[in-house]
Design a protein around this nucleic acid. Structure first.
Lengths: 223, 223
DNA sequence: CCCTCAAGATTACGGCAGCATTGCGGGATT
DNA sequence: AATCCCGCAATGCTGCCGTAATCTTGAGGG
């Protein structure tokens, strides 16, 4: 397998290249979007790892350019800007996955495998949970076609739980679904969100309950 | 299935052909409108993909010519994404759908499927929102049959919201509905449009309200 | 069976991020 | 030349959300 890495931090790029090499992956590396486009014409990459903040501009703008040229190679966006809403932005312009720095190479590999296994990535997923229908890409929740208004953080918690409905979601997973690495929590803010979310779901008769798994995380279950 | 592709960018055409090939579609390709017409006489295509800017003229002029000859093959117009208003023109002369470049091949396929599934091709979608009837293709809004006049940007915001009536529309989605990639916003211009649009809708008794979903986006709801 | 302690649940409070509104001025259009 | 659109920025305000204090629940041990 052969990847294209578009990243301007040289040390990170070098480290990634060697790490990927241990998985049998050959990596081409460039710091510039202009070069990147040329490279994709010359090589059929299996995946593209794309940084957002680059010397010649916003990395995301590369994706439409690529798609316009008919290249449908999976793109995984790497960024320090791990604001959850920004992830959605990336996915909306055609990225296949999003990975916030810092990350473990193992996690990257897991996502790469997932993306490569996916036959078509444009299917708009929807989650049904109780009476709710959730569109995780547009952060949209409806009951009987009517949109519900959730505060941002509660909404992110809800989506993260609904994505793995009937399965326990680790506390740390929830935290990284709601907060980025700059934002740090020193209190029980997550617990507070869960509590407020529970109250709200009850009031609107959403048909789901959130259970605490002591010492592990939370779990959303249909009633 | 067999498609006719009328496109002068060779690279894009080649990429599209192979991509469509993966979906089991045979593609005939030409760069000239004159050839295209001949080809449609000889082959019963399932769909025609038509670029607007062509060496021998405006691609759109091909559609009336085709219809006059009694050919009702679905036509999907590929246009530069820059001008939202530009897309609309194509639909007025009888195109069945448009697709702004850049696009994902998967999106093209989704639209192709949609068009082929449509029983009658020249269906004119219309959105009813409150007292308004919106024709999103012609960017036309009426109340009681009377046409309303909107500033361009406010109109684009309104249509984007009305298309997803009762669903939240992400801020980033709205921005990309109103602005293209060259135009950049550094202020709360979108907020200003929303505010002015609200005022206007109120004055004319449109029967809809626009709600802010704090930290997420906006939502249009009927009163 | 009860006691203990840790983990979770709930809620008030206050700071501040994000939205609403509006005047201004430049530029496009007529 | 007049008008209107529209980006920009200043101002005011709403309510989200982090914090912490307090209460509740549950597991394990004696």
């Amino acid at each position: 397998m052969r990847f294209l890495l578009i990243e301007d931090e040289k040390e990170l790029a070098a480290a990634l290249s060697t790490a990927l090499g241990k998985h049998g992956i050959v990596t081409d590396h460039t710091m510039h979007l202009a070069d990147a486009f040329e490279l994709t014409r010359q090589n059929p990459y299996d995946a593209i790892l794309l940084d957002r903040r680059l010397p010649d501009g916003e990395g995301l703008s590369f994706i439409p350019q690529l798609r316009r040229a008919g290249v449908d190679t999976p793109v995984i966006v790497l960024t320090a800007r791990n604001e959850p809403l920004e992830r959605v932005e990336g996915l909306n312009v055609g990225a296949d996955d999003y990975l916030g720095k810092p990350f473990l190479v193992e996690e990257l590999m897991a996502r790469v495998r997932a993306v490569l296994r996916r036959p078509s990535n444009l299917v708009e997923p929807r989650i049904v949970a109780g009476r709710m229908v959730i569109d995780p890409l547009n952060l949209n929740v409806t009951i009987d076609e009517a949109a519900l208004d959730f505060p941002r953080r509660e909404l992110l918690v809800l989506v993260a739980l609904a994505k793995r409905k009937d399965k326990t979601v680790l506390r740390s997973t929830l935290e990284s679904a709601v907060y980025n690495y700059e934002e740090e929590i020193q209190s029980n803010a997550l617990d507070a969100h869960i509590s407020r979310l529970r109250k709200r779901l009850l009031e609107m008769g959403a048909g789901v309950t959130i259970h605490a798994i002591r010492g592990v995380g939370y779990l959303l279950r249909e009633e």
